[in-house]
């Protein structure tokens, strides 16, 4: 299939109800960091973006949201797919992006390079959708903060070693800062800027 035809296919089959279901999963996961949600979506974005991340894009993005893509995603058929299925435009600068998509294996830029929001409008910050390998089997991390009764544990595979430090810097800027949606396969986990991450001693 050519790049052009890819761009016009693969949206939601039932946009109203599928978008609602994906959103509710994201809302629950954002409200309860560490909770893993399932995305049973029918979208098929151009590779290398995965269906779950594509479903997140079609749920939240439209022509009011500009999107930053990694070089690999920007070079794929994804920009056309996002334009056709969501009406969303590609941001030239990370600072101007409401959303950013980072495929599995791509370099995760430091969070401070994205829009942080302002002290008056901290909501005007980028939400990063980051694909990783898995939520289990990696270095154990402990999560605390709003939405978490006592402590949640995750052990993500596919985040850079610097991640806890990037995140701590992000956390320090509160109320400014980015929020993360991590995607592994068809599973999703959210990290709002309020979550405190500590590296568990093995």
């Amino acid at each position: 299939m050519s790049l052009d035809t890819l761009a016009f296919a693969g949206g939601f089959q039932k946009p109203v109800f599928e978008a609602q279901a994906v959103f509710r999963t994201l809302m629950d996961c954002m409200a309860r960091p560490g909770t893993i949600g399932d995305i049973a979506a029918t979208v098929t974005p151009p590779r290398p973006l995965t269906p779950a991340a594509g479903a997140v894009a079609l749920t939240l993005c439209d022509h009011d949201t500009s999107i930053w893509l990694t070089p690999a995603l920007a070079a794929s058929a994804l920009p056309g797919w996002l334009a056709f299925n969501a009406g969303a435009a590609i941001a030239d600068e990370r600072q101007n992006a409401r959303f950013a998509f980072i495929e599995k294996g791509a370099m995760l830029p430091n969070f401070c390079l994205f829009a942080q929001g302002t002290q008056e409008y901290p909501d005007r910050s980028t939400t990063l959708v980051v694909e990783i390998e898995s939520f289990e089997g990696g270095r154990p991390l402990a999560l605390t903060g709003p939405g978490i009764r006592t402590e949640e544990g995750i052990a993500p595979v596919g985040l850079p070693d610097m991640f806890p430090q990037f995140w701590a810097e992000n956390r320090q800027k509160f109320p400014r800062g980015v929020d993360l949606i991590l995607v592994a396969g068809d599973r999703v986990l959210c990290l709002p800027r309020t979550t405190i991450i500590s590296v568990k001693e093995a």
């Binding site: 409200a31 939240l60 949201t65 909501d123 939405g147 509160f174 929020d179 709002p192 800027r193 309020t194």
Partner: peptide
């Protein structure tokens, strides 16, 4: 929905 997610995060 976007506003709700940001509201939850802050």
């Amino acid at each position: 929905r976007r506003a709700i997610l940001k509201a939850i995060a802050i």
